[in-house]
């Protein structure tokens, strides 16, 4: 099917929904987006996510397929954002993977796992303490064990999502409009894309908690990943000494406020990176649910003119561009991507 001139309905205005709206508009489609919440509600998982685009950091658990999607997404983000990259705080000068002395085995395991998945040492660089100090001066003498993942990126989803909604003035945004009758929508539009995330059948929510901290004493230029026995802990620097740290990962669909224990774990990780975080202010705590499939991989399925795209799990910003590109070439060229499934 040709996208140019066709009418497309998108259900869900999270990261996938908005990016689909953008790419389809660019391709000449007439796009309508239906979102159950108001424009200000910001309930999508993408508002909570720290916004890392880090294929290497995720390869150990996601495997080579996820890594490849992530590498393609890195390129697509740059292409798509172009000169607007600054508006969404896009930063692509690499990230640092750090381990405290007693967690060294975790870092060794990490590189071994990456190699096991077929991602070799040419994708990262081991740093001596001096090299680390050159790249990230405030971490001088703090970490004997560090890896530099060149090219990894991050962006600020809380800037990207409203930016897209404002920028795409040609899109018909239907806020506070839950969709109950899919068939009616399918009759009215050439193509319907359902990216509602959590709540779809076969999708489970995995709870994640993040903290926003303002720490004027701390200056970091790169997103950090700190090795931790239970979680994938990221610290993403935002503008003006603001930092996002996350995220816990709990097999639970509870969306309630952050727990004391999670606060302690994230805060102590933060403090262990730089004591300047100790006097930082906790500006916000946030908890949300990641939409996940049983194998934690993305999925697209098709029924007539209805496409369902879901399950980006912890990897929304890492996977969305490549997943969208693959889904669109499935529409135009009938090529099924590897994450196609008959049914969700």
């Amino acid at each position: 099917m040709k996208l140019n001139g066709s009418t497309v309905a998108i259900i869900g205005a999270g990261l996938l929904g908005r990016l689909f709206a953008w790419r389809l508009s660019e391709a000449g489609a007439v796009v309508s987006v239906f979102e159950k919440d108001s424009e200000q509600a910001n309930t999508a998982a993408a508002f909570t996510a720290a916004g890392m685009v880090s294929p290497l950091s995720e390869v150990a658990v996601g495997g080579k397929k996820l890594f490849d999607l992530g590498e393609r997404s890195l390129t697509l983000w740059q292409q798509w954002l172009g000169e607007d990259a600054e508006q969404v705080e896009w930063q692509a000068n690499g990230s640092l993977i750090l381990a405290h002395g007693q967690d060294l085995p975790l870092l060794q395991q990490f590189t071994r796992d990456a190699e096991y998945q077929g991602v070799g040492q040419d994708h990262w660089q081991r740093l001596t303490p001096i090299e680390l100090a050159n790249i990230e001066p405030q971490l001088n003498n703090r970490f004997a064990n560090a890896i530099y993942a060149k090219g990894e990126a991050a962006l600020n989803g809380r800037k990207l999502l409203p930016w897209l909604a404002n920028k795409l003035s040609q899109v018909n945004w239907h806020w506070s409009t839950p969709i109950n009758d899919l068939e009616a929508l399918q009759a009215d539009f050439d193509l319907v894309i359902d990216c509602r995330g959590k709540g779809a059948k076969g999708i489970r929510g995995v709870r994640g908690e993040v903290m926003h901290v303002h720490a004027p004493d701390v200056t970091l230029k790169h997103p950090l990943r700190l090795m931790h026995p239970r979680y994938h802990i990221y610290v993403v620097p935002r503008e003006n000494h603001h930092f996002v740290i996350g995220a816990t990962e709990l097999e639970s669909e509870d969306r309630g406020a952050m727990t004391v224990r999670s606060t302690l774990e994230l805060a102590s990780a933060l403090y262990s990176i730089h004591p300047g975080f100790g006097e930082g202010r906790i500006v916000e705590m946030d908890a949300n649910l990641r939409p996940a499939t049983p194998d934690n991989m993305p999925v697209v399925s098709q029924q007539d003119n209805l496409l369902t795209v879901n399950g980006l799990y912890r990897h929304g910003y890492l996977l969305a561009p490549a997943v969208i590109a693959d889904v669109l070439s499935m529409v135009t060229e009938l090529q099924q991507p590897w994450f196609y499934k008959e049914a969700l």
Binding site: R204, R207, L250, E251, S252, E253, D254, R261, P294
Partner: peptide
């Protein structure tokens, strides 16, 4: 311990 069993919110995982 860490899955809030009280409110059954992790049921999908337990079912597996």
């Amino acid at each position: 311990r860490r899955q809030n069993p009280g409110d059954r919110s992790g049921d999908q995982f337990w079912d597996l």
